[in-house]
Amino acid sequence: MIYLDNSATTKVLPEIMDTFVAVNETYWANPSSIHEFGHKTNQLLQSAREQIAEILRTASAKIYFTSGGTESNNLAIFGLANKYKFRGKHVLISQIEHPSIIEAAKQLVVMGFEVEWIPVDASGIIDLNEFSKLIRAETMLVSIMHVNNETGAVQPLKALSTIVRRESKAVIHVDAVQSFGKLSIDFKRYDIDAITISSHKIHGIKGSGLLALSKTREIEPILFGGGQESGIRSGTTPVPLAVSTAKAMRIASTGLEKNSTHMKNLTDELVQFLHGFERIKMISPENRAPHIVTFSVRKIKGEVIINALQKRDVIVSTSSACSSRQTKTSHVLKAMHISDDYIKGVIRLSISPLTTEEEIETFKKIFTEVMNVIKGD
């Protein structure tokens, strides 16, 4: 099998699974317990928190472990909005965010906040001029993903944060689920306030993630109970997941430069190959993340191509695994004003550091065979 759907999820690295199993076998006490066993388990948990804080350049007390990207994004939207609503109730969200941001923002409207949607250009990148027109002195929250999960478009975070700091006192949340481990990101590099990370996108284990805050920011909880995670995320902290997430982040950050170069070389090769087909339109912009190439075939449904490739043991996806089983058109593609001839035929290829040159060569051969067989409308 050739697996080119790594933006949906990645294969767990053996060393990360080994860590998960070892912690389950050795440090299975509740980290909140006051006995020595609980204390040792809590020490391991705090060590994981410190390692992540060092990578993201923040304080360990500002790392909150969650069940993954969706929970972290919800915590960011609701928790930051409630904490800083004294500054105003105006919120800016980009049109191309993940559903866990979009749907949460819609709930903010029900709660009495004013949400405006930041437009993007035809490349799926935020229009800085339009953003400058939308932001106000009373804007209190801005949420923008670093890398779009459907197209790989990279947002100009530094330019955006500069505008925010100049025009408002808003807190800036960044969904880095698709960027961490592929591009450099930390609080000081981009002058941002909150970062979402999901473990299973970086060869970690599903059901684990985190929300990190900068040293000076605070947040309100959205889950209530025993007061774990400094009162921000109640529920017994799953130490094996937290420790394996820290390890996944260490591996990803240590190999960042090498892995990014490897993936960029492979996706550049894919882009050049795909340009050879008259019926294909590139959806990913030139300024894309190193691991994603998204394109569309004119007047052909993406599912047709996916099924044809799958019969040949090649796994790809439509624009997003989160919405691929739904019939509605992607909100990201709508925001980019993709024409009707192409909007149904979108295919996303997403690779990982484990993807090989041989796999890409095999994909090119199989895809050519598929394109020679499939006819358009």
Score class of each variant (00 low, 15 high):
206 K>R: 15
273 F>H: 08
301 K>E: 14
213 L>S: 05
199 S>Q: 10
303 E>I: 05
306 I>F: 01
281 K>R: 13
217 R>L: 06
300 I>C: 09
262 H>E: 15
228 Q>S: 14
303 E>A: 13
244 S>W: 11
200 H>M: 13
235 G>M: 07
310 Q>S: 10
290 P>L: 08
261 T>R: 15
307 N>C: 00
278 E>A: 01
234 S>D: 06
200 H>L: 12
256 L>G: 10
207 G>V: 11
213 L>G: 06
285 P>E: 06
236 T>Q: 13
209 G>H: 05
280 I>N: 04
286 E>G: 15
274 L>T: 08
226 G>E: 11
266 L>K: 10
258 K>G: 15
201 K>Y: 07
226 G>W: 07
275 H>I: 02
246 A>V: 07
252 A>T: 12
284 S>L: 01
305 I>W: 06
304 V>W: 00
258 K>Y: 15
269 E>F: 12
237 T>K: 10
230 S>W: 09
283 I>V: 10
237 T>H: 04
245 T>W: 09
198 S>Y: 04
260 S>K: 14
289 A>I: 03
288 R>Q: 00
290 P>H: 08
266 L>W: 12
219 I>V: 06
304 V>P: 01
222 I>T: 12
245 T>C: 10
263 M>Q: 15
197 I>F: 11
235 G>P: 12
299 K>N: 14
